[in-house]
Design a protein around this nucleic acid. Structure first.
Lengths: 209, 209
DNA sequence: GCGTGTGAACTGGTTCACAGCG
DNA sequence: CGCTGTGAACCAGTTCACACGC
């Protein structure tokens, strides 16, 4: 029974996908909603509802076949093709991301880095091509890059995002602690705001729940 | 009219708090819900509802006094005292976080770093004290550290979290792509999962909305 | 008229309960 | 008997609409 996927559902299904990967590596063939729920920290009902959105996948009475579940998720979430990505802003965070080797195993291929400071680029020892900011549009189009990890200083975040949009990028993970404005029909955005998460955490700590 | 704060509400209020800071720096004294909403990317209704949870704060008809609003938020969210934090795991991400100077201006004081690799610690040039992992409990208690940024490799995340809990930590920002289990009544957790965010983004891109 | 405060309506996601199958 | 699939019940957060004050 196919249904439209809500964002919380998508988020959880992505985690289920990850779990399937790990289960497969461990050689486990079948898994129940209870086990999945435990692994990703949500009740079993929720998992079942979520998985149901993809149509019937489980064998009633005996859980899910890991390989089959993973295949369904791959198609439903669009993980068939690997996505070409770039990192914009090579300060501490940007270069940490550049060194993060897990991208490859996750269906992403980070093929370029950009920074406005030529010095920084020159002193950077890396196997990934790095370009000055003014080449952004050209490189993104030439390399068919679909998504960007935006890790520039907050004051230039919007301007940089504008260039990304003009370059035809389709998705942005925004690490800057400001809201960026993009045409929502063309470009998807996810925000990761470390300071805000810390503040929320701090509030939860004082509120005691 | 005081009400209990939901997590989405807290998240937005933290962003409003941040906005107040910036407005103050710019010397702006008053702000409307419309302006705030635009700045943090949510409709004005929502902002008003959120702010209302703190009791009456705005002057009917003429928006909010920035200083007063900020003061209310500070008290309601518990930003009076600065929180002592530590960074656990000094790989690329951990050390990037260590260099992130914005913490100070945000009410946090990062007073220690921990890593299991002694080599890494020795070759690290930094003004922040860095300790081997086996000193974690002792240092956390001695330094009265309340929260931790957990950036260790995924396989040791749970074990490390257990030590943090045993050390009496009160909050964890978990950067590892696994769910960590902690006694929820004592310790608050917020997860930041970069790979999962990228996957969600990718799904949204294929689903075209 | 603009902007806040707030109760009422609504929407949609989560939780429950149970039928059905291995 | 355990586990999935699913319709129904529930609940929470969001959105709306309007009264009141500047």
């Amino acid at each position: 029974m196919k249904k439209k996927l809500s964002i919380p559902t998508i988020t959880r299904l992505c985690m289920v996908f990850q779990q399937c990967d790990e289960l497969q590596i461990m050689g486990i063939l079948r898994v129940s909603s209870t086990q999945l729920g435990k692994a990703i920290g949500v009740p079993a009902h929720t998992i079942r509802k979520d998985i149901n959105c993809l149509g019937e996948v489980g064998d009633t009475g005996s859980g899910y076949d890991v390989a089959r579940l993973k295949a369904h998720l791959r198609r439903a979430l669009g993980f068939d093709q690997i996505r070409r990505a770039c990192i914009v802003g090579l300060g501490r965070l940007g270069s940490a991301l550049m060194d993060y080797e897990k991208f490859g195993a996750s269906g992403f291929s980070v093929v370029a880095g950009f920074d406005s400071s030529v010095n920084r680029i020159e002193t950077m020892q890396t196997r990934m091509p790095v370009y000055p900011a003014y080449d952004m549009k050209e490189v993104i189009q030439r390399e068919a890059i679909e998504l960007a990890l935006l890790a520039v200083p907050a004051p230039v975040a919007q301007a940089t995002a504008d260039v990304l949009v003009a370059s035809g990028i389709r998705g942005i993970v925004n690490f800057c602690p400001v809201v960026i404005n993009v045409p929502e029909t063309q470009v998807q955005v996810r925000n990761i705001n470390v300071i805000n998460e810390m503040r929320v955490l701090s509030s939860l700590m004082t509120l005691g729940e």
